[in-house]
Design a protein around this nucleic acid. Structure first.
Lengths: 143, 143
DNA sequence: TGTTTTTGTTATCAAAAGACAACTAAAGGA
DNA sequence: TCCTTTAGTTGTCTTTTGATAACAAAAACA
């Protein structure tokens, strides 16, 4: 597999995705957040509600460190924790209205940049891209 | 564009790519490198030869910090700097044999994991994936 | 009931990473 | 030639991040 033709493409592709998404969100990220805090906020945004353990697992962070960063985000009033009535050890974490507004703003900026990259394409080409995204997510980048 | 159908897919897709590549390289990364040092080594691997300025630009790091990390990687004998004879301010940075061996090892591990994700697919499906990677890289994730 | 497991918190220390000032050396112009 | 720009270095300080130990409370279980 090492010299499997797909693998070289895979490496180049993922490198490109990382670089482009980095560039796209680079200067729309709120400067009041550290990189890790931003990552956490983004993760909560697409997966809410989540528990602390889930964040810890998915982001490969220890529970103590996750707990600390969540506390900081809570102090900034960007998220809210709701104790699960069925299991009072767990807490469902979601974005506060302020946190949601912040993420919406970031996504708006990112959407703008993505739009610039595809607006010159025909509707048909855009559909092709949509199908390609679906295909890859289903066959390779599934969780 | 904010609620452009493609954008939602884009967000979900890039999130998935980040998570999967993270998981795939997670425990094949050499523990003698810090995360930033690994990222730099990986960047050099796919772009060599590069200059310090290019690394600084692409990775959004200041020149002093980039210089420091490159020094550490050089001390670990993982890369070599060759002064450009045409412009002696510049230095072409490449992986040393040891550095190349380390990256090859990481890529071998990653290739293994990717292989597991696609080996059950038919040759036709694999070609479809290849085409999808090409398409997206050409139309969206171009540098 | 007592014990263990799960879920999370607090505190502390060390390492990694970022920011910035001051500097050198080569190249490019005027 | 002198001045400016480009490419990179060194040193220092601060912030961020990671690691670990010790803890508490709820749930699960024997």
């Amino acid at each position: 597999m090492d010299n499997h033709p797909l693998f070289k493409k895979f490496v180049a592709f993922t490198a490109a995705v990382h670089q482009i998404t980095n560039d796209i969100t680079k200067d729309v990220k709120p400067e009041t957040l550290t990189p890790v805090q931003y990552k956490i906020l983004e993760y909560i945004a697409v997966s809410q509600p989540v528990t602390l353990s889930e964040i810890s697992d998915c982001m490969h962070m220890s529970m103590p460190n996750t707990s600390r960063e969540l506390r900081k985000l809570t102090e900034k009033e960007l998220l809210v924790k709701v104790t699960d009535p069925a299991d009072r050890r767990k807490q469902g974490i979601t974005l506060s209205p302020e946190g949601q507004a912040m993420i919406d703003e970031v996504f708006r900026g990112a959407a703008q940049r993505v739009g610039e990259r595809i607006e010159h394409l025909t509707a048909e080409q855009q559909q092709e891209i949509e199908r390609a995204l679906d295909l890859l997510q289903e066959k390779i980048f599934y969780v």
